[in-house]
Design a protein around this nucleic acid. Structure first.
Lengths: 346, 346
DNA sequence: AAATTCTTCGCAACCGTTTGCGTAAATAAA
DNA sequence: TTTATTTACGCAAACGGTTGCGAAGAATTT
């Protein structure tokens, strides 16, 4: 063990060692012009030597800027979000930003508390995918009021909100899934939807209805279910659906967890899939590819979503989002593409 | 839109409004004693009214303490880590701490850079699960030298390091998996291992060998493979294994991704599983439960791991980890239990 | 009533960086 | 050589909280 000193070096230390002022050190570190080349080299050498690292808190306090971005998602264990986050983090890191990742666990209360905390740490921006139940977005006002830009993605506000919005084409996803089932001669298509407090399920449901209408089919209420999309709930719904005839000939589930559970249930019941029941899921969860039969689903391209988010974010952060106080109309809404992945469950 | 002022309130603002000094406001916010009850109430009321939130940077700068904890993991999309992180975050949040989650992407360089960044933001502690290839741990010295406690989990240093270590019982996991296969009369058990630069694979491999030895079997080098545990690599290994007879009668893979790919390969080859080939994985990835046949695997209880981590962390953070400069021996090493989950692939 | 203790609060320094302003030295222009 | 301009750097005041010290007033003791 070397007897290294346990010293947090400051620019004052460096200044003393080099017979310079802290101001000069700071200017070197911030690439200010008007500092002698030789001085700059000496400073950089010393920085290397003692392993100096700028104190982010002091820097942030003084300059009123940080290079940390906050992120709030329902849960990181959801495949889609995990992928998006990974992309965001890697891309942002290249721009010199850090990411504070927070989970709301689909609790509005936690989401509120997290926005307060992120505000307290004066993050440079906040990226949000809302809880299932967020219908009032006023708790994000504390951010926008303080010029902290907000980007919503995936689960976004239904009403206009002064923030950039990036969402998948859920309407199209619902439409593609349902149309495909209709093309395969299904006519009694059940839909397992999430709660309609959440934008994505509203749109997927709308896509489902549109497709049904185009085939002149009415949406039978008794074949559409709204609840949190857990395996347990999906099982209950399947039991309900198969408690009386006529059985549905297809299920379009708004996420893969439900679709997988539907498949599980069908297999237990001895139903042939896709023979007697066809199933389509949503999100292209890795599990959907490896079940038997493999699951037809909607791909959301999470990596692409992450890249779009970072692109917009960097635009906002570099561009001086100063007092501009732009109108709601000035914030872009970007819709990213989705794609039907045809597998064996249809 | 209300014309709310875009003002970052400071304790000076509050002080002015209440005809008090900033010091008093600060004492109220920090629950210092010796402040009049009435005054306290007035301050708290004003805090509520204007929506004041303490500036974490200013606070951290002055008090030289932060309530953010850094976390470095290879990738959050790994099921085990996602679960651990979720638990850590939820538990820590209850203690008033935030979590900065970072991914090294299994790159040692990124891991180094991330520790530097976390040091720069003067986090209260750092939790690390190393990359596959981290054998030199000196880049963490910058943390320990500056009294930032470090907790390693899962993938931990092989050599003594002055930090708390929390690891699963990988030796036992390897032993349980292999013994179980041996009990089922398997004798040609292949092992797909990760690189031995990583502690967990060393131990799982050791458990495998121990079990084999107890059955008087030598470990045939040609049945043991070391590489990153991706699906692609597992496929190559399976091809190799089944390129010549005698075929192995079982595969113990050190993670579920490899086990699942092994199963996939076996099915493609028309091998009956578990009839002709038995497979055991590791981690109890959600996918392992839903494949056909379902996968026997080792449960690591990630939620428990997360809780243990937080318990230790809080102990460290509350206890003044001051100049103590404890010897390596003073840091605990905790080994958490694992369990064999018997399913249909054996 | 005087002396002592306790309660409540303000003063001011400090945490480590940043940055406008000022100034001395060096260079260019007159 | 004198004057104007540029370059290189230091001074000192912020940024928003925290905290030791001290002081005024209230409560208690003698």
């Amino acid at each position: 063990m070397k007897k290294k000193q346990s010293i947090q070096h400051s620019i004052h230390d460096l200044a003393r060692r080099l017979h310079l002022s802290p101001a000069t050190i700071s200017r070197v570190l911030n690439n200010h012009p008007h500092v002698h080349k030789e001085t700059r080299n000496k400073v950089m050498a010393m920085v290397e030597k003692v392993g100096y690292r700028r104190n982010a808190m002091a820097s942030g306090l003084r300059s009123n800027k940080t290079n940390t971005v906050g992120l709030i998602v329902p849960r990181i264990s959801m495949f889609f979000h995990a992928e998006v986050i990974t992309t965001i983090q890697n891309e942002l890191h290249a721009y010199g930003y850090q990411l504070i990742i927070c989970q709301s666990n689909d609790s509005v209360e936690v989401e509120k508390e997290l926005t307060r905390t992120l505000h307290a740490s004066r993050v440079a921006a906040v990226i949000v995918s809302c809880t299932l139940f967020t219908t009032d977005f006023s708790h994000f006002d504390v951010l926008t009021e303080n010029n902290i830009p907000v980007i919503f993605y995936d689960r976004v506000p239904a009403k206009p909100y002064p923030a950039c919005i990036i969402k998948g084409d859920d309407f199209r996803g619902g439409y593609l899934a349902t149309s495909y089932l209709l093309e395969q001669s299904c006519r009694r298509i059940a839909h397992i939807s999430g709660p309609l407090t959440c934008s994505v399920y509203v749109d997927r449901f709308a896509g489902y209805r549109q497709a049904m209408q185009e085939y002149g089919l009415s949406v039978a209420d008794k074949r559409v279910f709204f609840h949190e999309l857990t395996a347990e709930n999906a099982r209950k719904t399947m039991k309900e659906l198969f408690s009386r005839k006529p059985y549905p000939d297809a299920v379009f589930a708004a996420n893969d967890v439900s679709a997988l559970e539907a498949l599980h249930f069908a297999k237990e019941m001895g139903l042939r899939v896709p023979g007697e029941l066809k199933i389509v899921g949503y999100s292209n969860d890795p599990r959907s590819a490896i079940v038997t039969p493999s699951m037809t689903t909607i791909e959301q391209f999470p990596t692409n979503t992450g890249k779009v988010i970072v692109t917009e974010l960097v635009k906002i952060l570099k561009g001086d989002h100063s007092k501009g106080s732009a109108a709601v109309a000035d914030y872009p809404t970007i819709v990213t593409a989705v794609e039907l992945i045809k597998r064996k469950s249809v």
